[in-house]
Design a protein around this nucleic acid. Structure first.
Lengths: 345, 345
DNA sequence: AAAGATATGTAAAACGTTTTACTAAAATTT
DNA sequence: AAATTTTAGTAAAACGTTTTACATATCTTT
């Protein structure tokens, strides 16, 4: 019923007999040394009283800024990304920014379309987990300098840009070393066939950990499309078949681990007696699994905080348009029953 | 480097020597019987050529419409809600709408703040899973008629409004009947102490299923804050302790089930031999669990499609501002190992 | 051929801000 | 007391649309 009429600066102006300019200055904290304290107080009180809120579209139209940050995740319904999204949203709002989420599905075309769409909508910043083979597009996006660009989860070593990522090398190394320490003699690595930095870094971390412990690395790199597929599971089982001596597995993502665990269940493999397991990315599934699965967990709150704080800092742009923000955060090994081999020695 | 300059209607106007008005009419498909086909084609071709996209803020400023839909979920990082969100986003974009997500955390204050915030931002529609004790606020929101309001997952039977929900009664009944059919003699219900319609409907469905099979219903209703807590788990264990004869459990939400399964693990209860289990809401965790857990799964794609289609329909507003959109969709029982008691008879 | 109808188009106001360039009065300096 | 600076404030343009009200030319009817 009561369609309440929004009050505009003009309304305040006529009501108080003060010019629009003056009021705008006061609202935007540009009134110091320009407007008397008396008038400032009068206006501020009135604004509070009537609950005035500036019209966002008018502000955007005038300034070209939308106060909007886009988070383009690989898949926003993935618990890892959605948890990060949720944390960021909180901080963004407190700083007067709204966030929009979307998913690339690791699809180049889709990602390009989304970027173009959001550029039309004049967003101020992109936080992106780029799909594969996307370096060129990211470079162009950065070069245009229309928006702040922050990469997440993946970075390019041959381009200078802002990013927040996990210390993937150390994480993988720690996890693989844990498997070795638990008594594994032949640790295999199951990862993604991908140009993502995080994937090569994890593989390198694994290799570094095992180099003095087993004759050669054993790895399976699946294409993205097979992470959750039966075909992927078959390839995984084949690996175990070809290398009967494998007694430990490091999964590079939670998706790979879930599919892998399904495969192990189908093969009736006993964890950890026959095979110890550690995976990247914690999920409550892993805690509840029988046996519970050890994980290299990503520090979600810290990642989210750094991401959004870094982005906001770049948006303020105090250090010029070429400033970058780069953070590499350590993961944390959570030991559960899936790698307790040593216990049974 | 190449900051490409956005082209405006005015640019097109001066370039083509055609008035702004005419061009606007053509863009908005209001040119029929007003402008010659020749001019229409000329303008449309030019627009395509230069890739003109209207400035959203200017449109909003002029029309008061933002082409934005807010999805206020209980927790957007919950797999169920984020899956629904993702599906809706897709369709919304295709229809020229963008979506914003946020989480109420089942907190009244927070929900009110969010609504107020988004009203300031002039969003066009709210899709809401209301927190508890929020009926009054929802009623007021609807009465203001400034935005389209669509409820999800919960509804109020004493207010006329739009909603899309699961057929909770039938779902709970089907699940409980399955437990009975599997040989359970004493089925307990673990739910939420809540004024949510879905919760009372599920409880009723359970009661209806068991009324001719066991002397009396056994139920535990936990407060929202204890769903994931240790305290909740303790209460659950106490229930089992007080009713030694319980041989089947129906969990009303996946959160309750996860915590409950942890409790059962701590008690070393054998599923399904000692205790059969079914829960609402499928998650890959349940498939992977040992034994795999039977679920009453919600039809996520259908729910999402109905939600967004309904909202878009109301936004078009062909049938006046008092039109409502109400859909109740059936769930699907997915039978897995956790209720295969009968097999062992 | 005059009157009316139709086809084709445009001028200008409005949406609500921000910001540049200005004015007028008061205070300070010379 | 004149010149200068400071203080306190404002007018008006601009951002890019949509839409109302109007204008002109052409066609149709009488």
């Amino acid at each position: 019923m009561k369609k309440k009429q929004r009050v505009s600066i003009k309304d305040i102006s006529t009501e108080l007999g003060i010019s629009i300019t003056t009021i705008s200055f006061i609202i935007n904290k540009k009134a110091k040394n320009r407007i008397s304290d008396e008038v400032i107080k009068k206006v501020e009180d009135y604004i509070k009283k009537v609950g005035y809120k500036p019209n966002t579209s008018a502000q955007t139209l005038r300034t070209g800024k939308t106060k909007t940050i886009v988070f383009m995740a690989e898949d926003i319904s993935d618990p890892f990304f959605s948890a990060v999204a949720k944390e960021m949203e909180e901080i963004a709002y407190k700083n007067g920014y709204k966030m929009i989420y979307c998913s690339t599905e690791n699809d180049k075309e889709r990602a390009s379309e989304l970027i173009s769409l959001f550029q039309d909508r004049q967003v101020d910043a992109f936080i992106i987990t780029p799909p594969e083979n996307f370096q060129q597009e990211i470079q162009e996006l950065i070069a245009q300098k229309n928006e702040v660009v922050m990469l997440f989860d993946r970075r390019y070593t041959t381009t200078d840009h802002s990013y927040v990522i996990l210390n993937n090398f150390n994480g993988a190394k720690t996890a693989a070393e844990k498997l070795i320490a638990s008594g594994c003699l032949n640790v295999a690595y199951v990862g993604l066939a991908s140009d993502f930095s995080c994937m090569s870094e994890r593989l390198e971390g694994y290799k570094d950990a095992i180099k003095n412990h087993q004759s050669q690395p054993i790895s399976l790199l699946l294409p993205f499309k097979d992470v959750k597929s039966k075909a992927g599971r078959t390839q995984f089982k084949n690996l175990l078949d070809q290398h009967k001596n494998i007694d430990g597995i490091l999964f590079a993502t939670n998706g790979l681990a879930i599919n892998g665990l399904k495969g192990l269940k189908e093969l009736n493999k006993k964890i950890p007696d026959e095979l110890a397991v550690i995976t990247f990315d914690d999920r409550d599934l892993f805690e509840l699994h029988s046996p519970s699965i050890s994980v290299l967990s990503q520090p979600v709150p810290a990642l989210a905080t750094e991401l959004i704080k870094g982005t906001l800092q770049l948006l303020k742009g105090k250090n010029g348009p070429n400033e970058t923000f780069q953070k590499i955060l350590p993961g944390k090994l959570i030991t559960r029953d899936s790698c307790n081999l040593g216990v049974y020695d």
